[in-house]
Design a protein around this nucleic acid. Sequence first.
RNA 1: ACACAAGAGCAGGUGGCCGCUGCGCCUUUUUGGCGGAGAGGAAAGUCCGAGCUCCAUAGGGCAAAGGUGCUGGAUAACGUCCAGUGGGGGCGACCCCAAGGAAAGUGCCACAGAAAAUAGUCUGCGAUCCCAGAUCUUCGGAACUCGGGUCGCGAGGGUGAAAACGUGCGGUAAGAGCGCACGGUCACGGCAGGUGACUGUCGUGGCGGCAAACCCCACCUGGAGCAAGACCAAAUAGGGAAGCGUCAUGUUAAAGCAUGACACGGGCGGCCCGUCCGCGCUUCCGGGUCAGGUCGCUGGAGGAGCGUGGUAACACGAUUCGUAGAGGAAUGGUCACCGCCUGUUUGAUGGAGACAUCAUGCAGGAACAGAACUCGGCUUACGCGUUUGUGUCUAC
RNA 2: UGGGGCGUCGUCAAGCGGCAAGACUCCGGUUUUUGGUUCCGGCAUCCCAGGUUCGAAUCCUGGCGCCCCAA
Length: 206
Amino acid sequence: MCREKDLSTKQHQSKTHPRVFGPYANQERPGGDQPTSSTRQETSVSQRSCEITRPDARLLFPKHFRLLKSREFDSVLKSGRRMFTRRFVLYVGHSGKAFTRLGLTTSRKSGSAVQRNRIRRCVREAFRLHPEWFVWPVDLLVIAKPATQREPQSSEHPQPREPIFSLASVVAELGPALRWYFQRAQSSGGQDDGRATKNDSNNETQ
RNA sequence: ACACAAGAGCAGGUGGCCGCUGCGCCUUUUUGGCGGAGAGGAAAGUCCGAGCUCCAUAGGGCAAAGGUGCUGGAUAACGUCCAGUGGGGGCGACCCCAAGGAAAGUGCCACAGAAAAUAGUCUGCGAUCCCAGAUCUUCGGAACUCGGGUCGCGAGGGUGAAAACGUGCGGUAAGAGCGCACGGUCACGGCAGGUGACUGUCGUGGCGGCAAACCCCACCUGGAGCAAGACCAAAUAGGGAAGCGUCAUGUUAAAGCAUGACACGGGCGGCCCGUCCGCGCUUCCGGGUCAGGUCGCUGGAGGAGCGUGGUAACACGAUUCGUAGAGGAAUGGUCACCGCCUGUUUGAUGGAGACAUCAUGCAGGAACAGAACUCGGCUUACGCGUUUGUGUCUAC
RNA sequence: UGGGGCGUCGUCAAGCGGCAAGACUCCGGUUUUUGGUUCCGGCAUCCCAGGUUCGAAUCCUGGCGCCCCAA
């Protein structure tokens, strides 16, 4: 756990976001193909400006697109693939429905009620504006990290105004992670490797 | 100009696009469209008081536990608010006070100090006696010093946060509230004022502090809380409600009826009175649990201005307004413009200058903080401008 | 949401009005050729702010933080 955190912070300081997940792919498949090199360079920041004023598609987010029940949360937590970013922990599991559902968890350690509302709204808006992230329907669970772990290099920054949540920062953080997930799952032969990836990730964390 | 005190207030605005949750209407009855609404002064902390809901009687008495504590009023109620009394702080505007009882009782007051509370004696003051010394002597003694014994005293020194009311005079062998005058404070009584706390005055008597130490006095408090609770559906599993206590005697063929006696255990979150329940049988069919749904769920001790009454809190009257209801938890994201503040560039005006005002460009900032049943308060967090008042300085 | 409990040195903690014990750690010194051990010394805003008291870690009030429980 702490080893991965050190890895992610070090990668973040070098400002190469998509390479955060590089070591995992190499470790799991030592002699395999690497198809992610061609699409690694395109980032979601360039697509963001045109998507806001896109007039052709309605980007709705009704209630049944969300995870509502406790056992739905438990099933995603038990059988989903776990990923880490700088401020979130992601669980991606199989959706039984024809659409992608989103679940959010912000504990009391991640800030006051105003900050928790801010985190949920930003993540929900990023989920709503980017349906092209999801190649097939999944159940996505986003857990916010505590405020102390969220900003590991805050002592080096003199200004305390830096860790404010904005939509652009959330999109820049979640987009590459989900794109890497779908590319790797597609290359390994479809959606049936949820168990295997979960076991692999557990082996890596130890 | 600076520093402060009190009061009332606001919580940047407008528009475009894309979204979320209720409500109403129309189509469809999966859904879609239109209209309109959508966080706060503290929504927070959960510190008090209530509404509302349930709990086997919330019925009485005693006790325990907890809370409150100057007076009068306001209020549904309050530990809240208003007005006053007393005390304290500040030069002042003004602010603060859990502010009953130490004369009901118990207890404590470390260290220091003689003594920390029925006063007492380390240094002391004084009287008297004894011993010794030296001086004077009319040889009888006189007065003094040192030491010791007895008695009286509560003044001075020193200690301490606090030393047995303070100061002055009298008084005495020495002294002492021992007496007197003035003053402080407390209790009681009289008179005057006030609804009252209390104030003024006179008289009598007294004089350590601590009750946010135990306690005493007066008053108040049943408990749990909307995840309370009600209904519906499904599954699981066997229980739930109502009636009947026992014995003896009398009567009766019996059942039954009447009278009398008696019993244990448990419940009513302590005890007593009081009251309810029991084992088994009979009759009836509903009952419990659960992040399933619906209701509870927002119109209420509601707000605004006006009039009347009241010093005020507040009350009354009529008018007017319509004001969030989520449930893994909505009330948002983004862009543009305007407005505010700070820093800075340039220009203009005023001025000797410092600097001030206006215009313009750039950069940055805009606090504390998110309803979970609802109200009345308290406390805490925090940005801004404004009104009134006080003090100091400078100028006229 | 509701109900409980606790904050004392870097850590574990005692102390319930009168000098803040102790153990481990750390720092400085001593012993030793050196290290360890031993010995000596040091290191506290008693979570914060007010109040009661002569005097507060303790008593009272209000905040802040942490932990636990019920669903």
